[in-house]
Design a protein around this nucleic acid. Structure first.
Lengths: 138, 138
DNA sequence: AATAAGTTTGTAATCATTACAAGTTAGCAA
DNA sequence: TTGCTAACTTGTAATGATTACAAACTTATT
């Protein structure tokens, strides 16, 4: 999917966030590599292209993009924070054998619980864990 | 709910995990305080009763209980690991205003996605975020 | 070009969690 | 009951991820 830069820049402007060169690179990386990467994965890859990039900037950029609502934090496990570009509703499945994270289509807004009638729900996350088909076969 | 110690001990034995005094206290705390506490919350409370308790032991006990399947790790946010005693299927709602975590009843096993037909699903977590009724009123 | 606000960088600080070694405890067998 | 062994606890030190901060740099705007 191609990023619409003008639109993104306009959205960011409302929040006084500039789409700087590094931030754009981080956003592009997430858009082009749908692997739900960790900060380290992003840093290591981008550092090859941008030798002056610091890890602090990666954290910075990610936090800015999350604040802007363009990027989502995934906390499937307590010891690894991952990032995902915001797209339509989907859940995440993590394979307990190979560690790979899969997207799966699911209509999150259809989930209702009478216990939450009086709650304002801003965000719905679904995390499944188990074994992926590749690992089942072995 | 009262803990059935004999049954729990028996289950643990299979995994060579003893239900030591400290571990039992941690388990009791989770059973009696359904507040999805952090390690610090557990440590501070139990330390009052058990002055010799170390934080390492709290971590240790929690990890053992998680391994035994009696306790579940909640990773709603990337910067705070919480623990929950394992009960029937329910989702978790975190209020973005007051930070409180609510349980809500939901039939987790009813969630299906055709994308996961060939996957073995061991675990389903649902995390919602938003504003709770108490905070909406203010 | 000048200005002001926002961004990047590197280092240092912080915080949660784990590793480790030494001492302690619990369960089992003789 | 005693002794043995494995498991547990403790405190300290190490690790690792993330944030704080100050100085230098960049960008958009006047």
């Amino acid at each position: 999917m191609k990023l619409n830069l003008e639109e993104i820049t306009k959205e960011l402007k409302n929040k006084n966030i500039r789409l700087s060169h590094h931030r754009l690179k981080v956003l592009e990386f997430l858009n082009d590599n749908r692997i739900h990467p960790t900060v380290d994965q992003i840093y290591i890859q981008l550092h090859k292209e941008l030798p002056t990039l610091s890890k602090t900037t990666v954290y910075n950029s990610l936090n800015a993009l999350v604040d802007a609502g363009l990027v989502k934090v995934l906390t499937i496990e307590d010891n690894e924070t991952r990032y995902d570009i915001v797209t339509d509703n989907h859940g995440h499945f993590k394979c307990e054998s190979c560690g790979k994270i899969y997207d799966f289509e699911i209509n999150l807004s259809s989930f209702q619980s009478k216990d939450l009638d009086d709650f304002k729900i801003n965000n719905r996350d679904i995390y499944f864990k188990g074994i992926c088909p590749d690992c089942i076969q072995q």
